[in-house]
Structure formats: C-alpha cells, structure tokens
C-alpha cells in the first residue's frame, strides 16, 4: 500500500475509535466538573463530586438498580433452565413433531417481544402483573436465541459419551445436569453475558409495563430523570448516566476479553 493511504487508514481507525468513546468521555468530563464547565472545555476546570451527590438525591437510583438486578437475574435464571431442557430435547431426542417444535421456537427470533407490546400488555394486565418484576420478565423467560444456541452446542456432544453415561446409570434430568450442562459451559457463559447486557439495557417493554418506583428498572428511571421537564442540568445527567451504566461498564472492563469472546461465540453458532 502506498504510504499515504496507509497513514490515512490508520488515522481513520483512531479517529473512529475516539468518536466511538466520545459520549462516554464527555459523560466523565461533565460529571466530574462543576455545571459551568459542562459546555465549555478548559484544562484548568476544577474537579468535583457534587454532581454525583445531587444525582443520587434527585432519583431513587438505589431502588432502580435493585429492580434492574432482580429483573435481570430472574430472566437469566429462568432462561437458563427453560432453554436447557428445550435445547436438549431438540438436539438429542428424536421425537414426533421435532421440526414443528423447532419452527415454533425460531419464530421468536423474528417476532421479538418488543413488537407485541400491545397484546402482551393486555395479557399482563389480565394476569394482574402490571408493575411487578414478574411482569417485566414474563415475555422474556424463554429465549429462542438461548434454545438455539444450546441446541447447537448439545448436538456436538459425542454419542459415545452419552452412551457411557447411560451405562453408568445416568438418565433423564441427571444426564442433562451431569454431562451436557458442564460440557456446554462456554455457551452458558456466552449466552449469560449477552442476556445480561440485553436486559440491563432493555427499555421499551419495561416502560410499558411499569408504573412506579417499585418495579421500574434503571433505563426507565433514567428516561424520566433525563427528561427536559425534570429540569436537571447536563452535569447531573452525566453523573446519573455514569451511575446507571457503572456496574455493567465495570463488569465489562474487567471481563473485556470474555465479553467480546462470548459475543463472538454467540454469533458464530
């Protein structure tokens, strides 16, 4: 490659990298400086933690975060259980109607629960589950993506291994639990990280189905907190944003490699 093209390519790569973290960089800038410096950038601007204090006072972040953690955990635990059983059946059992069952499952990959907010809201209100953790979780408790991912993984387990386990007297659920689940550990990790980051960030359905602080997750809380009507300034909003994304961001930075590898792993299947 001619050298100037090489330089241009490298320059674009770094420029794009800076652009991509710019919102986060700005959030850090505004959050740690007094409001006067939110829209002007100067190296001599004093540092402060005041914005975090007022953000924390103006919105029940503690409760929002608790709600998000409970909802995300509820969904993940249910998904892991439900998807393991279905994934195993679809991968290893030869039963009547298997193709049909798989087709039913795969529908959800296209028709995501977000699209069906109108009817699902009616269902949840009939069940009396508006503004509850279960209500936020219900449409996501089974994941077509998880079932498909586990099915692909379980399919690769050698038949001899299963036969040997059966000779040892394992069958049914204990066979799944003792042989298949441990072998699929990377897939479980991958799916869990994808699921956690999806539901930590999910907004539209929780917005529809929650009314109060009792069940409202961070995303919905932040949308209310940041609304222009609430009259909060940029610095406080930035501090709030950092509080909201903090835990997931910290988790991501520590387990960066696993995160990226998990997303890759989930993508190749």
């Amino acid at each position: 490659m001619s050298t100037w093209l090489q330089h241009l390519s490298r320059f674009s790569a770094y420029l794009l990298g800076i652009l991509w973290v710019l919102p986060l960089l700005y959030a850090f800038w505004a959050a740690f400086h007094p409001p006067e410096y939110a829209t002007q950038f100067s190296l001599t601007a004093p540092l402060t933690l005041e914005n975090f204090v007022s953000a924390w006072d103006q919105a029940p972040f503690y409760r929002y975060m608790l709600n998000t953690i409970v909802i995300t955990t509820l969904i993940l635990v249910s998904q892991l259980f439900v998807c393991t059983l279905a994934g195993y059946a679809l991968a290893r059992e030869n039963f009547f109607g298997r193709g049909f069952a798989l087709a039913l499952v795969l529908t959800q990959l296209m028709v995501m629960p977000e699209v069906l907010i109108v009817e699902n809201y009616k269902t949840l209100s009939d069940l009396g589950q508006i503004d509850t953790y279960l209500g936020v979780g219900l449409p996501y408790l089974a994941s077509a993506f998880g079932i498909f991912l586990l099915r692909q993984t379980f399919k690769t387990v050698p038949q001899e291994l299963e036969d040997a386990a059966r000779v040892e007297g394992l069958s049914g659920l204990s066979l799944i639990w003792k042989v298949f689940v441990p072998l699929a550990f990377p897939t479980y990790l991958a799916f869990s990280l994808v699921s956690i980051s999806y539901h930590w960030n999910n907004f539209l359905w929780p917005l529809v189905v929650t009314n109060t602080v009792a069940s409202r997750p961070l995303t919905v809380g932040m949308a209310i907190f940041g609304a222009p009507e609430s009259g909060v300034d940029w610095s406080v909003i930035s501090a709030g944003t950092l509080i909201a994304v903090g835990p997931l961001l910290a988790l991501f930075l520590v387990f960066q490699r696993q995160f990226i590898q998990s997303f890759m792993h989930a993508g190749i299947k």
């Binding site: 932040m222 909003i237 944003t241 994304v245």
Partner: peptide, 12 residues
Amino acid sequence: PTILPMITVANI
C-alpha cells in the same frame, strides 16, 4: 457502545 444502554446514552 454495544454494552451501553441506548436510552441512557441518548441523554449524552
């Protein structure tokens, strides 16, 4: 950006 919530970063 993949792991940042769209709604929260929209404020920025």
